[in-house]
Design a protein around this nucleic acid. Sequence first.
DNA 1: CGTCGTACCGTACATTGTTCCGTACGCCGT
DNA 2: ACGGCGTACGGAACAATGTACGGTACGACG
Lengths: 298, 298
Amino acid sequence: MYGIGLDGSTEIWHKGTWMNRPTREKAKQKPPAKRAVPVPKKAPEETRSRVKDDARTLALLWRRQERPARSGLTLSTIIQTAIEVADREGLEALSMRRLAEILNVGTMSLYTHVPGKAELVDLMWDASLDGLYADPDEPKRQPGYRAGLEFVALRNRALFEAHPWLLDLNITRPVIGPNAAAKYEAELRVLDGIGLTDLEIDAVASQLWTHVFASCRWAEEERRAQQESGLTDVEWWARTLPLLESVMFGDFPVASRIGPKSNEMRLPETSTQHHFRWGVEVVVQTVASLVRDREAQR
Amino acid sequence: MYGIGLDGSTEIWHKGTWMNRPTREKAKQKPPAKRAVPVPKKAPEETRSRVKDDARTLALLWRRQERPARSGLTLSTIIQTAIEVADREGLEALSMRRLAEILNVGTMSLYTHVPGKAELVDLMWDASLDGLYADPDEPKRQPGYRAGLEFVALRNRALFEAHPWLLDLNITRPVIGPNAAAKYEAELRVLDGIGLTDLEIDAVASQLWTHVFASCRWAEEERRAQQESGLTDVEWWARTLPLLESVMFGDFPVASRIGPKSNEMRLPETSTQHHFRWGVEVVVQTVASLVRDREAQR
DNA sequence: CGTCGTACCGTACATTGTTCCGTACGCCGT
DNA sequence: ACGGCGTACGGAACAATGTACGGTACGACG
């Protein structure tokens, strides 16, 4: 079953080999072998979208170690390179062809190592979490759950800033890899043993995640819009508002009072920074009130 | 400038015309006109991704009324049909070709009415909000801000249940259309005048939105996974857990205690229902505590 | 030194959004 | 009634995508 439980061989690959491989430019100029018989067309009904194979992905996620294959390809290097591309140019710039080109490999060679693009992204998600926390107790070591939660929030924000493409992922029920598991464990431990029920722990953790995700996504959206239009948020509103008013019918008194105001600069914090801190504070307060209730009950 | 401020003509189109149009089946069999000269290839550098034109979209969003064009096409019918397809088969099943086919029109005819697919989706977003609230005061009419916020949350959830594709949208800074503006206004009014600052109103409203979105997205993800695999969440875990344990290394005591438990059924509520109510409650409590603080200050 | 598994990868294909441009419909002025 | 013209329509082509198929050749092992 998909090679779960790899043999765990400790053999070390002899370094240097793949660096001597000829560049793929030449291989491309090789005269192509003609196909003798034209391939019959497949009924389009059969081309239904491939379904992700969680079991296979699971095996790849928890792979123990690997030895480069003929071309020097490694699942890890594929994933790392993919992450680099996504970091640099965004998720939509990451195509299998482009990735293969960078790795100096034929496009279809990737498919020997990865079932498909969707699975590759799953693997990228888990890989991007590598080293998020030094150990599963790092957040818990902060003085008190408030500091712990703030620590978690900040680390997650840093994660999104390092890998903005994560915000395009809509991570909800991901396949669980080693790093995701470690992250989850570390973040739950902050809340463990302070008087919350298990269900409450889960709810608080997921709420914190949701908030940080939304907040960072908002910030990233703003960053992209700014880069695209060359306008800051405030400038954009200044330009759009007259346009909007010229076209709008109906009255929106409250919205037009609050909308622009919420987008003004709140020195020394920007709007997004404020939003981030506000949500974290709400989570902290929620926990505080839960803890208080428990203590009063005793 | 893009026809902002339409003339507002009241002329009514003579009904019946477009219904007599021949079906496009025939038109397709018409012998194609050969292109005289082969089109020279364009440099791929020039094929940069089209950037959304907000001003144009704004004009389309706030269009006042419209008269069907030659083929009977109307921006509104395009949008409505697109929404129907997305409701029925999901956003990824919605392609310009498919949409045109359903509308019995050539694919490119759509581009006379809509700048591109991205803008169409923007228009769909706003159109889907039509009638979300009977009027901008409907939420505020509920007895108290708690009931008001719960009302808003439930309406938003109903929205996502009617149009699950909205959950794939990652709506952050959308172009503001009439229905989105009305929604925003109605939801802000619930919080207006109960003692919160404008910044707090905005923060609370956006937090409620974020939560409902995340919660509904979670539920939808689960629904899709279930439909795809034929397994309920509980069954999926029952099948995956042994697989996971067989492959996992390292210890995750807290996660393995809480993870599966959070996914067990909490009768009579399902896990997602519980999560939804929990987050709404947090928002309500936050507002309550803010209001209390204000009253104590006075 | 053969042989066989498998990594590699060229080719092809379906499908996507969109550009380009020719066509023809139908409103408006004469 | 008619002619002109703006504009809605839409066919063909294109670049780009993920990936199915199947041929090739590398290299480990007998």
